[in-house]
Each structure stands twice: as structure tokens, then as C-alpha cells.
Design a protein around this nucleic acid. Sequence first.
RNA 1: GCGGGUGUGGCGGAAUUGGUAGACGCGCCAGCCUUAGGAGCUGGUGGGCGAAAGCUCGUGGGGGUUCAAGUCCCUCCACCCGCACCA
Length: 840
Amino acid sequence: MADTSEIQHLKYDPSQIEPKWQQIWRDEKTWHVSNKPDGRPSSYVLEMLPYPSGEPHMGHMKVYSVGDALAHYRRRNGMRVLHPMGYDSFGLPAENFAIKTGRPPRESTEDAIAEFRRQFETWGVSIDWDREFGTHQPTYYRWTQWIFLKLFEAGLAYQKEAAVNWCPNDQTVLANEQVVDGHCERCGHAVEIKQLKQWFFKITDYADRLLNDMGSELEGWPQNVKTMQKNWIGRSEGAEVIFSCHSIDTSYPVFTTRPDTLFGATFFVMSPEHPDVTRIAEGTGQEEAVRDYVNASAQKTKEERGADDKEKTGVYLGRTITNPVNGEEIPMYVADYVLMEYGTGAIMAVPAHDQRDYEFAKKFEIEIRQVIAPASDEVEVPADAAYVSSTGSDVLINSGEFTGESSVEAKAKVTNWLKESGRGESTVNYKLRDWLISRQRYWGCPIPVVHCEKCGIVPVPEAALPIELPEISDYLPKGKSPLAAATDWVEVHCPECKGPAERETDTMDTFVDSSWYFMRYTDAKNDREPWHRAVLNEWMPVDNYIGGVEHAILHLMYARFFTKALHDLGLVGATEPFKNLFTQGMITRDGAKMSKSRGNVISPRSYVERYGADTARAYILFIGPPDQDADWADEGVEGVHRFLARLWRLGLEVDSAGAGSGVDAPATVAGDSANAVMRKANWAIDKVTADMEGRFAFNTAIAAVMELVNELYKQKDALVSEGGDSAQALRFATAAAASLLFPFAPHVSAEVYEVLGGGRVWETEWPKADESFLKSDEITLVVQVNGKVRDKISAAADATQDELLDLAKSSEKIAGYVDGKEMIKEIVVPGKLVNLVVKG
RNA sequence: GCGGGUGUGGCGGAAUUGGUAGACGCGCCAGCCUUAGGAGCUGGUGGGCGAAAGCUCGUGGGGGUUCAAGUCCCUCCACCCGCACCA
């Protein structure tokens, strides 16, 4: 036996261990997975595509720690696992950097990618690097353009002039989803509304399926993400009601969820963006006031218009319009509380039963006519606010032939009545808008169409793809894409008439790039098609998708839309991209989000250099449940590092003790120490397996391995001196600890396993607990009197209820509590506890 | 305002179906080892009372169901996240 006291002082040095294993994995392409089915079930584990900028941050380390643990676990459970890597490498930050420094986005992006790849390798993440790509590579975006053409052919990509969100700082339009509280999601600048001709994807065609399929196909998604998407889609049932303005012989539909309140509509309001408002005011003397109001609205930012406590404003349009239910002429207004992008851009206003209309009517002294009354006296109608039903048992008043009807039934009755005379019908309205995908920026995927004077919009033929992004020198945006200045590139011949034509100079939103990358991974090297259908269907949908909740709406909804649209085109078998979604919590520092401005950013690199990747990764998983936010504490890192060092030293010590060999379980187990160790090892196997299966409880899984290692330290001296099977039990249990820890700390685990003679741990099957060590002969019986623990007695595990009861009663301590008192009830929970209920 | 979530020692967190609250780690205390310790090993560590045995209180507050509640129900509070003039 070697001198173990020397081992105690050996230093666990990850900088020696980790590169050794990384080199093996890299040289042997250990994590490469073939597309040829081999009988094993397939599993697709994917972390959200990283945007390569600077170097990876803690959020990246967390997402790959989670995903890698899962990928390793699946592999060792006999699955064929696809676990690829790539980069979301088009985007504004690289372009803004180019504007500042003149350095081409391609160069800075590719540098960042190299740094990301280098660091990911130092983390020892088990990636199939053969499938790596960046979305900025022509070999990738060729197919982004190809998909655009497919969507264009299917009528799902179109150009229209619309009131759109414009960020004056980034000099580009933004999708609705990219506007947060009236500000640009990227730079934080206040967003303006502009009328511009833009490209859209018709995601609204899929509104119902995006909504309904969440219920049937996304059981593996967190509820909060589904709720967010549901709210974003914003389906609401109601009616479209047509109001006629006889003085100009035009009619306007409105959307309402309350057709039952139509008799209370005492005015009509249109959005300032409504194309007809100035025309309506013409010849009424209100032209100027209306024009001024419309112009003033256009100047305002989204935030100013939507301010919480903002008083209602508006201007009379100088005309009246006819309420279709009672023929009343009601005044028309323009007001910015009506949004052009929702419904029809015009509303019927019912001040008695809508708070916004109420506020407007008060200010403009318009009649407030109550038409809904509570059925019961117990409900009060407020005197200074709109009455909005809360009971669902309201009735109509002042509503002609519908007076006395219940509010709920009247909705359908009024709608049907209107429908008979062609003045309305029931409809469904959505908050979801079509996805605005064009951006007036350089560093993105060019939209593959040309504009021809004769032929109009002409898609580029597939054979001409990719339309490559030209090299330019001036990246400064000027309200148009910088591409517009690349005249050599812009000026082309029309593919149809061969006449002079111009390329589209807008590029695509980078969310387009990331809406299909998970499909490309399945067949990343295919240069004839974006993927081979059979290959794609073998892997898709992604079994476990892991990433931040910040993508709950944007990326996740777009990816779902793409999958459904491509499915409908016959290109994809799946109807949903991600079967299970896991949203990991943030890593904070001192309780706050890490940010440069706070100066509390810590880099994974510094911890990898100091403690090794295993420590950093295991710490991230140990800190708490991975779906929760977690605060980074350096002391905690030290603790995990100590634990890994303990395991590593234990491996050396156990092996150098000389007794036993290899990592197999002993033939026989005798003695307290050997039994204790075997029980603990099998308990840990059982526990870690359960924690990996049911949920991502990596924190308790690691804690279980810590408990095992603690037990081994306690028993090792005894086991070594006993020798024989006892020493073998120690080898087995130590190897089991390494094996169980492998998904979380792969390098040190591989090292320990190898030291013990077990070979390559990742080639071994996930350990299975030996049931015979899981149950013990004895249990601790908890004895309660009136629900309070009064004694703990050791009892046989197979004792009957009566035996347990007798045992409990025979306790002297218990006697002190129950003697001389009346026994009311005796409760026995087999294997656990006895509760005696006494009185007096 | 609407929707969702969280609340447990000094700290991060455990507690599978209601059945020993506080696993594991950090921190702290003590002992051992050592020339030394900011290394390693062992033990202790929720509050109060007590020399101890033990008693008692205790999972944001209040109430309830139950033999038994961190867990179920009602109610209130605090914090976090999402949406928000959506007709």
C-alpha cells in the first residue's frame, strides 16, 4: 500500500487533466453522430443558438452545462444523441462595431466564432463539431433565401406599405415583437411609427394553429411560456359590425367583443393612422384640427401614446355615422387611444361599459347611456366609471327588442340579427400581426428578389442562390440599407424580361436565420438541398430545447411558424419544432443581472482558468434548480472545487491501496463498512437516475454523489485494511461516484474512472442500482403522541402494523406520555411511523 | 389593472404521493494532523430555556381541513417576471 498521506497533499490540477481528455474527444470525434440509423433510439438535445460576440458568458455556460448533462445521460442510456453547435452570426452588434471601427462585420464575427469555439472546447462540451455552421455563411444563408422563395411562392412572404415601428438610432424597422415598452429591444431608443413599404411573413395565417397546437403538442413546455404566447396571439371572439356614414356614402366596420352593448354606442372613434380620417373631415370645417391632430400623433413615440395615466385626447371629425341597431346618428372622432394595428382601426364607443370610452365621453361631454344592468341588486353600478360585468349574469336595458335579454345570450342574438341585414357577422380577431422581416441594414441575409420596372417584384431563380452579401466599405445606415450604395451589386438584369432591374437592398431580420437552424443541423453538409427529408424526420422534432425565457415569444413563435409553414409545403414532417422546452434561469451577481454598466460581469474563462471547467460547470448545476435564477458566489465555487478534489484524491488513494482491481462490484459483501458503502453507492445510483429522469434536478443529483464520497471517506480506511471484497467494494463505489458525476464534471470523472481501471467511462452504460442494497432490514420507527415526535425506535422493516404498534407502546418514553390517558386513535404508517392520539 | 411565479437557518438550497423540516454545499465553531496552514481529515452548527436529559417555538402573516400541513383550502402581505388604451 502506497503512502496515502502523500496523496492527501497532491494537488488536483484540472489544467493537467482537462486538456488530456479534450484532446481525445477532439481527435477521436467521440461526440460525432452519424445520420445512419443503427437501431438505437434517437434523441435531439439542443441549446439555443448563441450570438457570437466577444466571448461566451455565464448564461452560455449554464445552458451548455444543462444540455451536456442531458446529452451524456441519454448516450449512456443507449441513445443516439444529436448535440450540435452553431452561431447566430448575422446581426446588428457586429455591424455597429463596424460603423465605429471600420472593421468588416465578417472579420469581427469570425474572430468571435473562433473564440466561442475555442472556449466551448475548453468546457469539454460534447458537441458533434462536424455539423457546425454560422448563419452568416453563404452555404447556410443560401437556404435561408431558398426558404424565403418557398414562402414567397406560397404567398406567405409579401410586401406592403404599413405603419411600422422605426428605430431612429439603429435606422431600421423592427417587428412588433422587438418593441419593448415602446423602445427598441436592441438599443433602448424610443420607437417611432412610420409609413413604409416592407416585407412581411404571413404568420397570422397560422394564428389559430399556433394557439391550438400549444394545447395538444406542447405538453413539454413550461406553462408561463405558453401563456405568454397565448397572450401575444391574443385571440378574441366577437363581431364585426358595419357602420354607415351617409354623408360621404362610405361604411366602416368595427370589431367588438360586446355586440350586446351596441345600443349604448353613442360615438365612433377612428385611429389617427386610419387612411380615411382626413378625407372624412373634408368640407366640415374640421379639416385643419384633424390634420393637426394626426400630425401630432405621428410625431409621438409609441411610449408617449401609450402612457399609463395619459388623459384621453381626440378631435371631432365633423360628421356623424349611423348606429346600425337603432339608426341613431352618432358623432365621429379621431383619437389616439384607438390603434390602427388592432381590429379595423375604428371602434364603436360604449362609454357606459368601457372605461376608455367612458373617460373620453366625460372629457368631450358625450352621452353615457347605460344598456347593461346587473341581474342582482347585490352588484352595484359605479357612479363614476364604466360598468363592466364581473358576474356574467347581466341583462340588457334600453336596448329595443333585446331589452331584458341576458348579456351572454344577447351577444349572439344581436350579431345574428345584424347578419340577416348584412350589417355584421361574428368574427375572431387576433392581436398577432404579420412578421415584419425586412431590415434596412447590411449585416443580414439578402432578400432574394429584384425590382423590375416592367415586371415588378421578381424572385431570384433558385439556381442563382445564394445572393451573396457584397463587401462594402461604408456601413453607416442612411435610412436605407447600406447595400443600396453598392451599385454594382444592386444593378442587375430582371430574371424574367432581362431588362434593367434593382436588387432588394433590405436584409432579413436575424430571427429568420434562427427560425430553421435546428433543421439544418440534421443535414448540415448537404449542398443540394437544405436537408434530406428522411434524415430531417429521423431527428426532428428536437426532443429537448434549452435556453432563456427571453425568447418565449420572439424566437420560439417564429420557429414554430416556420416549422408549420414548411410542413404545409411538404418539406418537414414535424408540425412543432421543439417537443420539450426547458427555460433556464439567469445567473446573477450580488442579486442583480450581470451587465457592463453595473460592472458585475464575471467571465466563465476566469473560472475555467482558475478552477477548471469541471468545477465551473458542476457549480452552476449545484447552485440550485436550473430553471431558477441563481446568484453566483465565489465561496460556493470553492466548495465544489474541494469536492472534485476530494473525489480525485480518493480515486488515487483507492487505487494505490493495492487491494482489488478494476471497478466491478465485489462478489460478496460482508461487514458493516462494506455494506454501508454498497448501500450508499446503490442509493446514489438510484437517486441520481431518478433526478435525471423525472426532472432536471442536477443540484440534488450532485448532492447525492457528495454524500457518497463523504461516506467513502469515512469507510475507506476500514475497507482497505479488511482487503479482499471489502477493498473491491470501495473500488466499485468510488468508480460509481465518478460514473454518476460524469454528466456534470466529465473530465475529472473520466480521469478517476480510468485511474481505477474502468477504462472510458463514457463508453460504459449508465449504472443500474442493485435492488438488494436499496432496502435495509431495519427502519427507524418514528413514534408520535398527538402528532408530536416523542421517540424513535429501530424496528424490523417487515414488521406488521400490530407489531409496530406494540413496539411503540412498549417504549418507556412513550409510556410517560400515554399512561393514564384515554387512547382515542392509533395510526400506523407501515415502515415509517406510529401516531398515538390520547385525551386527558 | 390582467396573467404567471416565488417566499424554508447567517447564505445557496433539500424535503417523490400530507408522515422525523433544514439533505448537500457555503459560512461559523471545535478537535486532529502539520515546521507552518488561507491545505487536508473528523465532529458540531434553526431560535429560546437548560449543566444535561429534555422541553418549547419554528417553513412570509392570519384562519381552516386532518391523527398529522412547508406540502391541501380560504384570506392577507411582500418581492420578481410577462402583458398592458387589444375595443
